[in-house]
Each structure stands twice: as structure tokens, then as C-alpha cells.
Amino acid sequence: MEFCIGTCAKIDQIGLAKQAEDVGASHFGVGEGPLLFSDPYQYLALAARDTSTIKLGTWVTNPLTRIAPVTANSIATLNALAPGRTFLGIGTANNALRSMGNRPATLSELDTALDIARGLLAGRRVTQTWLGQEREIEFLDKNGHWYNLEDPVEVWMSAGGPKGLAIAAKHADYMTYCLGPNPDMIGVVRRELDKAVAEAGRPPGSVKLVALSWFYQLRDGETWEDGIDKGFGSGPISSCITNAGFMNDHVDELGEPIVKASAEAAMAYLGDPTAPDAPHYLEVWAKYLRGLDPVHRPLITKELVDYWCLYGTPDQLLEKTQLMRDAGCDMVSVFLSNPFTAERDIADIGSSILARA
């Protein structure tokens, strides 16, 4: 079973990548947030030396905090350390840009960056417009002394809505979507992705659908509330934020209650930046993916946890994972939103899901 484990890039937790490999995960990724986490490429470079089979990559970077040639170089350099097991995960950026008080990248900026990065990684000369100048660029080492352009790099994309799906259908090998064990939501995303792939002229199945969930294994006597308090914390709100627009477009199929609940949680988290008493954006993001911020506890209802999270007993976790695959996901993944419990969670994923799949 292909299964991806992701977490925050915490530079003194390089061992998590090896642990993920040992429990049977096929992919391991770390997020990028210049003001939030350790640098992902330093983390992945060290992880490459400690692992031998698991695929490693950014989950996710974006087109703005690093320009496309820099991203391509970083990935090609990682590909020299981990030949053939490197992937480039990229999106418009939720946390990385918002935590600096800036807007996320536009889909047009993402599309352009992928054109450039993929062209460079394929060894081609491409045209880039930067600093008001249009210039041809290419990797200047053709002999592989400095980076690896020979082994293919998988492209993973994270962006929602019709335009995001169209860009994924054009560029990606994998499309990541925040999804839980709900077959209705999975079915809608699967259908729309397959439609976009067909319209892009690519063969059916060219873009694999990766479900990104939030994880917690319940112990004896624990309930869904323990999953929040001891596990994924504020993570499920990220699913609400990234899916609000897409869900609203498909409210007739998904149902107004969950669409409304997800939108309200997202709005309550982000707040109204124009309000006189609005918190500073640095305050909003200061506790992002560090477990549970007590301020967010009232926002995370059982309805949202059931919809967006992969949680339960070992048997329930295995059952939900299979449900997600049967509903149309090519890969199930989890992002461990609390780095301080990641080692425990990876062990649980291994014993409850991967060892029994």
C-alpha cells in the first residue's frame, strides 16, 4: 500500500523519516513555513542519508517563498542524495504566506512555476520572467556533478477548485486533497479530478488522488475528544480552510450542514482582518500545527472530526483507510500536526494500518 506520512520540518527529528520507512510508509514529506518550521530542504537532505527506500519531498512548498529555479535546484540536489525517490510537493501556500501577512500564490503563479520547474528538472531550456525581464534559463551542469536530472521527480500538487484541478491535470503525478473517511466528498473530488485529466488530454489515472487526513489512534476508554486534545489538535480546521470554496460549489451533493460547518470553522479561525479588534496575523499563526490551541477547541466539533480525520481504534483505522481507498483515493496520507507526538503516531500508523493492510 502506498501511504504518505507528513509532518512539520523539525530539524532535531530527522529520525522520523527513518521510522516512517521502517513501519512501511512509501512517502514522507515535510511542510514549508519560513516563520513556522525548520527549513525543509536541510531536513530532507539529512533524512536522505538515513533512509534507503522511502520517497522524500516537500509537502508542500510554494511559488513565492522560493522562485521556481531555486526550488528546482533544491529538489534536484535532494534527488542526488536520494536518487529516484524524490518528489516535489507544491501548492499556493496557506500557512507559509499567511503567517507572513501575505496572500497565497495565485493559481496562475503556481502554473507558471510548475512550467519552469518541470522544464528545468527535465533538462530543458525554459523562459522565465523575473524582475521585469524575460530570460532563457537552464541547468548548466549537464554531467550530473552538482545535481541529479536523470532520475524522474514526481510532482505533487495541492490546490482546490476547478482551476486548481485543471493545473494538476496538466502538471501533476499526484494531487493532494484534504479528505477524511467520507465517500461523498471523496467521490466528488475523484470525479472532478478525472474530468480535468480527460480535458487535459492525459490518459485516465494519470494523476493519482492522495487523501490528506489528520490522525489519532484511540486508546481504551478514549473518545473523539481525546483525538483533539492528545492528537491532531487544531489540524482539522486546515481542511475546512482549504476546502471551503470547493465544498460550496458542490453543496447540493455534499449537504448544506457540513459545508456550512466547515466554512464557519474556517472563518472563525482566520477572523476578519478588517475588524477593529482583529488579532495580528502573527498571533493567528503563532500556534499553528503545534498541537491544540485552546482558543480553537470550541470550533472543532464531532461533525468536523468525523468528516476530516482518520481516527479510532486500530480496527476502525484499518476499516476507514480501506473505505477511503474504495471510495476513490489512490493513496491515503496523514499529516501529523503535532510534532511532539509524531513518533507515537508513526508507530501507531505502522501497527494499526500498514502492518495489516
Results as ranks from 00 to 15, higher is better:
residue 310 L to V: 08
residue 283 E to G: 04
residue 15 G to H: 12
residue 251 V to P: 00
residue 332 V to P: 05
residue 262 S to T: 00
residue 333 S to Y: 02
residue 74 S to C: 15
residue 322 Q to L: 07
residue 338 N to W: 02
residue 59 W to Y: 14
residue 71 T to H: 10
residue 203 P to K: 14
residue 255 G to H: 01
residue 6 G to F: 03
residue 39 D to S: 14
residue 19 Q to S: 09
residue 99 S to V: 04
residue 10 K to Q: 12
residue 224 W to Q: 05
residue 130 W to P: 01
residue 343 E to H: 01
residue 337 S to D: 04
residue 196 A to E: 13
residue 289 L to Q: 15
residue 55 K to N: 12
residue 137 I to D: 11
residue 284 V to W: 01
residue 157 M to S: 11
residue 116 I to Q: 11
residue 353 I to E: 09
residue 164 G to Q: 09
residue 283 E to R: 05
residue 222 E to G: 10
residue 247 M to R: 00
residue 202 R to E: 13
residue 197 V to Y: 08
residue 201 G to I: 10
residue 5 I to F: 05
residue 237 I to M: 00
residue 124 R to G: 01
residue 292 L to S: 02
residue 264 E to A: 01
residue 328 G to D: 03
residue 18 K to V: 08
residue 226 D to Q: 10
residue 4 C to R: 14
residue 195 K to W: 09
residue 48 A to T: 10
residue 328 G to C: 06
residue 144 G to L: 04
residue 159 A to N: 09
residue 83 P to L: 11
residue 319 E to T: 09
residue 159 A to W: 03
residue 348 D to H: 02
residue 96 A to H: 12
residue 290 R to C: 06
residue 28 F to S: 07
residue 168 A to S: 15
residue 251 V to K: 13
residue 15 G to V: 08
residue 161 G to F: 03
residue 61 T to Q: 08
residue 61 T to W: 11
residue 108 S to T: 14
residue 303 E to S: 05
residue 103 R to D: 13
residue 47 A to S: 11
residue 114 L to Y: 02
residue 2 E to P: 14
residue 138 E to L: 04
residue 322 Q to E: 15
residue 208 K to P: 01
residue 262 S to V: 00
residue 349 I to W: 01
residue 101 G to K: 05
residue 90 I to L: 04
residue 227 G to A: 09
residue 18 K to E: 12
residue 12 D to G: 09
residue 74 S to R: 10
residue 4 C to D: 02
residue 109 E to Q: 15
residue 76 A to R: 15
residue 198 A to S: 15
residue 82 A to Y: 14
residue 216 Y to Q: 01
residue 336 L to I: 04
residue 7 T to D: 05
residue 179 L to Q: 05
residue 108 S to D: 15
residue 115 D to C: 03
residue 19 Q to H: 10
residue 136 E to F: 08
residue 100 M to A: 14
residue 107 L to G: 06
residue 253 E to V: 09
residue 94 N to Q: 02
residue 258 I to Y: 00
residue 149 L to K: 08
residue 70 V to E: 13
residue 200 A to I: 12
residue 91 G to Y: 03
residue 226 D to I: 06
residue 341 T to M: 09
residue 339 P to I: 12
residue 242 T to Y: 00
residue 291 G to V: 11
residue 344 R to T: 12
residue 315 D to H: 06
residue 230 K to S: 13
residue 121 L to C: 11
residue 256 E to K: 02
residue 207 V to H: 03
residue 187 G to S: 04
residue 289 L to D: 07
residue 177 Y to K: 05
residue 319 E to V: 04
residue 145 H to D: 15
residue 106 T to S: 15
residue 253 E to P: 00
residue 5 I to N: 06
residue 290 R to V: 03
residue 80 A to C: 05
residue 155 V to D: 06
